[in-house]
Every structure is written in C-alpha cells, then in structure tokens.
Simulated scan of single mutants.
Amino acid sequence: MRLKTVIPLALALALLCAAAVAHAGTYMTRSEALALAFGEGVEIGTVQLFMTEAELAEVAGESGIRPDSALYTFYVGKDGNRVIGYAAIEAATVRTHPETVLVALHPDGRVRFVEILAFFEPEEYLPSRRWLKQFRERSISGRLRIGDDIHGMTGATLSAQSVTRQVRKTVAILKTYLARAE
C-alpha cells in the first residue's frame, strides 16, 4: 500500500477511535438532580450521618457492601416540617471509569427512582431508563439483586452490578438513619 493511501486511512481510523472514546459525560448537575428528586419550591437540606462501627457492619450485612466511609450525606426534601423524601448522590467506578447516580427515596426508605447523572464508560454500557425503572418502590431485601428482583443487562453487566450496589447501599444506609431517628 502506498504511503499517500496509508496516512489518510490512519488519520480516519484515529478520528473514528477518538469519536468512540468521546462517548460519555455529565447528564445532569446536582441542582438539576435535586429539583428532579423533590420538585420546585421544596426546602432541601442535608443530613450528615456519621455511622458507628456497628452501623457500618449492619449496612454491610443488609446490603452486601461495606461503605467506603462512615460519613454519608442525604439530601432531605421538606414541605414545612413534613419530610417528603430523601436523595443521595452516589459515585462509583464501573469498569475503569466513573458513574454517578441519584437515588431518590420515599420517607419510609423505599426507592422512588434512580437516575444516571454522569457516565464515563462507553455509551453502549449506559443503563437505560427502562432498566432503571426496576428499582421503583423497592426496599432493601435479599431480593434487591440482579437475578432476583432486578434483571441484568445484556452487554452491560458491570454497569448493572454497579448501579444495583449503589442502590442497595443507599437504601441500607437510609434504613440505618431512620432507625436511629426513631
């Protein structure tokens, strides 16, 4: 093959590869995510939960995931004195790149919805909204797992596992917080 032919082909291949890598990004800011979780005009505060060693062990037992830190932040939506829900923004590494999810929860700890805020793996591994709907109205249980209540995603197993772990951990931590508040 001639050099004049090889250089344009190599350049085209490099551009194609670069386009494949420029696959991901941030889909929603924290402010937009919290507005989605609680609606407009709702007072949003934060709760800093500093878990004891016993609570960390309880969360690990409930969720199968030991939190990386004893400190955890929940956003709390209030209408006057009434709590209308909680939300957590969770980040994790899927394969080699991060994803960030919003887990919106009812006041009793059930999942309202899950939303992807940022995803830096290739787009084909991004969980679909349809797949994320499986988490709605779920609470922490042994069945909140892929293969039980949650169906896997063909071709995106690591993404599905990552989101499921994030939801399980968040729901278990909120359960710990709610038990402490009683």
Results as ranks from 00 to 15, higher is better:
Tyr75Cys: 00
Gly64Trp: 09
Phe120Lys: 06
Gly142Phe: 14
Asp148Cys: 14
Leu158Pro: 09
Leu11Arg: 12
Gly80Thr: 07
Lys133Tyr: 12
Thr5Met: 13
Ser63Glu: 02
Thr52Trp: 11
Phe135Lys: 03
Ser69Asp: 14
Ile173Leu: 03
Thr26Arg: 13
Arg143Asp: 15
Gly77Cys: 06
Arg165Gly: 02
Ala181His: 08
Pro98Ile: 11
Ser159Val: 09
Phe38Cys: 00
Gln161His: 09
Ala70Gln: 13
Thr52Arg: 07
Ile65Glu: 05
Arg2Asp: 14
Gly80Ser: 10
Phe119Leu: 01
Ile44Gly: 05
Thr46Ser: 03
Thr164Lys: 03
Gly64Phe: 01
Ala88Leu: 03
Leu3Lys: 13
Ala10Pro: 09
Ala60His: 05
Val76Tyr: 04
His23Arg: 07
Ser128Phe: 03
Thr164Cys: 02
Glu90Gln: 13
Leu105Ser: 02
Pro8Glu: 12
Ala37Ile: 03
Gly80Phe: 04
Ser141Tyr: 10
Val171Lys: 08
Gly77Ile: 01
Leu49Asp: 11
Val21Ser: 14
Val47Glu: 08
Ile116Trp: 02
Ala91Cys: 14
Tyr177Ile: 02
Met1Pro: 11
His97Val: 11
Leu11Asp: 14
Ala54Asn: 08
Arg2Trp: 09
Gly45His: 08
Val103Phe: 02
Glu32Ala: 15
Phe113Arg: 10
Gly41Tyr: 09
Cys17Glu: 08
Trp131Arg: 03
Arg130Met: 01
Ala12Asn: 08
Ala33Met: 10
Pro107Asp: 11
Gln161Thr: 04
